[in-house]
C-alpha cells in the first residue's frame, strides 16, 4: 500500500508541475466564470445557464486533461527511460500501472474540485444559491473521467502519445454517440452494418450513462440507484481496461 502511494504521489507531483495542465485549467475556469455574465444576456437571467455551462466545461475540459495526462505518462516513462529504475525496484508492473493511475486520479480530482468551486462561486450570486444536489452530476462526471483516464493509460501502454491521443479522443466521442450508432446501423438496411454497429454498441462504453447533467440542470428527480448503477458500470469498464493494460504492459520489453 505504501509503495502504491509513493508511486501515486510521485505521479501526482509530476502532473501537477505540468504547464499544459494549468493552461487547460485556467481556460476552463475563465469559461465557467464567464457563464455568470452570460446569464445576464438571458431574458429571464436563468441560473440554469451557469450550471449547464459549468457542468459541460467540467466534462469537456476534464476529458481533455484526462487524455493529455493519461496518454503521456507511461509512454514518457519509457521514452525518458525513467521506467528502468522504477521497475528494477521491488515493484510489479501491474502495481506500477495502478500507482500511476491513482496519481492521475488525484490530479484529476484537484482539477475537478477547482472547476466545481468556481461554478459554486458563480452560482452563489444567483437565486439558485449553493445547490449541493449538483454534486451528483459532478460525481458521475468524475467517474466518466476516471474511465477516460484509464482508456488513455491503456493506449499509452503500447502506442505513441499522438496515436494514443487520437484513439482516446475517439473513445470519448464515440462514447456519446453509441446510441446513434446503433440506430444508424438499424436504419442502413444492411445486415452486416447493423451487426457491426450493434457489436460496437455492445462493446464500447456508453458515456451517456454518466450524463445526468441535463436532469440536474432542470431539477428532475434522479434516483440513487441510477447513480450507483452508473458508477458500477464505470468501474466495470475501468477494470476491463486495467486488465487489458496489464496484459500488454506485463509482456513489454523495455529495450
Amino acid at each position: 500500500m505504501y509503495k502504491l502511494f509513493a508511486i501515486a504521489n510521485n505521479t501526482f507531483k509530476e502532473t501537477i508541475r505540468d504547464r499544459i495542465l494549468y493552461n487547460i485549467l485556467i481556460f476552463a475556469v475563465i469559461l465557467i466564470g464567464f457563464s455568470y455574465f452570460l446569464r445576464k444576456l438571458d431574458l429571464l437571467q436563468d441560473p440554469r445557464i451557469v450550471i449547464d455551462l459549468s457542468l459541460a466545461c467540467i466534462s469537456i475540459f476534464g476529458a481533455i486533461i484526462s487524455i493529455f495526462i493519461g496518454i503521456g505518462l507511461v509512454y514518457k516513462e519509457v521514452e525518458k527511460r525513467t521506467i528502468y529504475t522504477i521497475l528494477s525496484k521491488p515493484i510489479s508492473r501491474p502495481f506500477f500501472l495502478l500507482g500511476k493511475y491513482l496519481g492521475l486520479l488525484m490530479t484529476l480530482l484537484v482539477n475537478v474540485a477547482i472547476m466545481t468551486l468556481v461554478m459554486y462561486l458563480a452560482l452563489a450570486f444567483t437565486e439558485r444559491g449553493i445547490d449541493l444536489g449538483i454534486l451528483r452530476a459532478v460525481f458521475l462526471t468524475y467517474v466518466e473521467l476516471m474511465l477516460i483516464t484509464m482508456i488513455s493509460l491503456f493506449f499509452s501502454c503500447f502506442t505513441t502519445t499522438t496515436l494514443a491521443a487520437i484513439f482516446s479522443l475517439s473513445f470519448y466521442v464515440i462514447g456519446y454517440v453509441t446510441d446513434d450508432l446503433k440506430i444508424l446501423g438499424a436504419k442502413s438496411g444492411s445486415y452486416l452494418a447493423s451487426q457491426a454497429t450493434g457489436l460496437l454498441y455492445q462493446v464500447l462504453p456508453n458515456l451517456n450513462y454518466f450524463n445526468i447533467r441535463g436532469a440536474i440542470v432542470h431539477s428532475l428527480p434522479i434516483s440513487l440507484e441510477q447513480i450507483l448503477l452508473s458508477t458500477a458500470y464505470g468501474i466495470f469498464y475501468i477494470a476491463i481496461f486495467y486488465t487489458l493494460s496489464i496484459v500488454i504492459f506485463s509482456r513489454k520489453d523495455f529495450k
Binding site: 510521485n10 509530476e14 525518458k80 527511460r81 525513467t82 528502468y84 529504475t85 528494477s88 525496484k89 521491488p90 515493484i91
Partner: peptide, 14 residues
C-alpha cells in the same frame, strides 16, 4: 529486487 541495486545506462531521472 529488494536485495539488488541497479544503475541503468545513461540514466534519466525525474
Amino acid at each position: 529486487r529488494s536485495r539488488v541495486g541497479y544503475l541503468p545506462e545513461s540514466p534519466y531521472f525525474y
